[in-house]
Design a protein around this nucleic acid. Structure first.
Lengths: 256, 256
DNA sequence: GCTACCATAATTGTCAACAATAATGTTGTA
DNA sequence: TACAACATTATTGTTGACAATTATGGTAGC
């Protein structure tokens, strides 16, 4: 594709950032996994400084953590952090839902239905990647109806922060189906101008992914509120498979 | 100062970003004014790529705008944008104030009083720079008492977005005095465990700077909701002094 | 066999020179 | 004088090489 090469670097930075975000959400990049600049730059066929910027972007979004001279790794959220973030999300999304003026403009409904058909199709054919994208589009369009783009932006940013969490639900057919049903129900509430119902739906829509993550987290590391990625002295290390491991470059290039 | 030179660049990036933020807030850098990388790198005595990162940071914070190959300029907010942002701020700060568990821990009060004494001193001696810093510290400490650091972070980010707006009030003795009084009143409300009063104070605390800015903006550009920096075809350009002007390097180096 | 130390490799951070782009000035022509 | 094409300059964007830092593996001394 020639079109990729002739793009402004700022666009390529976003592309790389989005690609990495997707990989994190889909669980291809596990929490604690390192992001090595050189590897990524060859994988995406961009210069290293583009990767650097993309990683900086992800850091700002709260998806990765970096330390001086040690590089970046997919961020691991403690269960308390997840709880805190979700509680703010609940407040903000509830707020936005309350501010949506009912009845909505017909175009709003039309757009939502269109997006949701894409989403449902993605769920149907088991395409979590597309489902993820359409899911974002749906929420943008839905909350966009509240009329305050800055509120929508904040909601989006907060959702991004817990994208790492989604890897536990983003690929699960059960959760995807539930999300799909929720979305249709929201559209119905909009059609019926039932604000109370809409607000309630938005609120309840959040819980499943939060609970699944917290449950799996506490099952693995105990009910501690401690951030498991911090090297707290008296804390036993989590199972080895998940540790921040130095990648072996030799292991890959053993063919040559 | 040798200590400045021996710092990690990530720290220097933050220093430069903070310095620029202050200059924007204090109105030394006016909206639409360009930020030229080379100039800044010599002014702050850092390499250009440090300045670049700092500008990128400011862009993420929403304080400057950049366009491909044309550089960055202090961002100009339209009155509708200001209104929207403040409406979200009001919702969030109200929310945080509601979530503060009363009575507060004694250390919280002590910290707030300590900060506020610094703030009052700064206001007294007419030091808007220090007042700005202490003001931020006060709000961090106050909302920090709500127990949800992520909510606090969002509130801080939103406040940063309208920092450019503050240049209209940050240097005004009247506004600074009012802010000081508000802060003391909030501390009193905390001491008295009067949540309702506290919430109300937080709500009312926001209006003055918003109203001042909107008033001055509408006086200059009319009551349009249009973003004045966008080159909308049928829109007359604002007064020349404020235009995005190419800086004349010769004008400065005429001595050599 | 274990620990402390050193040598080496892997990775990130820094830099200055160069390329690309957009704004400005200048000249030639009608 | 007005305008268009061109040349010049100011500014940002890109690159590859090098420096600094951290992790790893191995070796000697105990």
């Amino acid at each position: 594709m020639d079109s990729v090469e002739r793009q402004a670097s700022t666009a390529r930075v976003k592309q790389v950032a989005n690609a990495l975000e997707e990989e994190i959400v889909l669980g291809w990049l596990q929490p604690r996994q390192r992001l090595i600049e050189e590897d990524l730059s060859s994988r995406f066929d961009v210069k290293r400084h583009v990767v650097r910027e993309a990683i900086a972007e992800l850091e700002r979004m709260g998806l990765v953590e970096r330390v001086q001279n040690k590089g970046a790794a997919v961020r691991m959220l403690s269960s308390t952090e997840v709880r805190q973030i979700y509680s703010v999300r609940e407040a903000l999304e509830t707020l936005a839902a309350q501010q949506i003026l009912l009845p909505p403009r017909p175009e709003t409904i039309a757009t939502l239905i269109e997006i949701q058909e894409q989403h449902a199709a993605a769920v149907e054919r088991g395409d979590p990647r597309a489902a993820f994208r359409e899911n974002i589009a749906f929420h943008n369009a839905l909350f966009g109806a509240c009329g305050n783009p800055h509120l929508v932006e904040i909601i989006r940013n907060l959702a991004q922060k817990v994208h790492g969490v989604r890897s536990y639900t983003a690929a699960s057919p059960v959760h995807l189906a539930r999300a799909r049903d929720d979305h249709w129900a929201m559209i119905e509430a909009l059609k019926a101008s039932d604000q109370e119902k809409l607000v309630q739906l938005c609120r309840d829509h959040l819980s499943p992914s939060r609970d699944t993550y917290i449950a799996s987290l506490e099952q693995r590391f105990g009910r501690t509120g401690q951030h498991p990625s911090k090297e707290s002295p008296a804390q036993p290390e989590p199972p080895g498979e998940n540790r921040l491991e130095r990648r072996s470059r030799l292991a890959e290039s053993s063919v040559t």
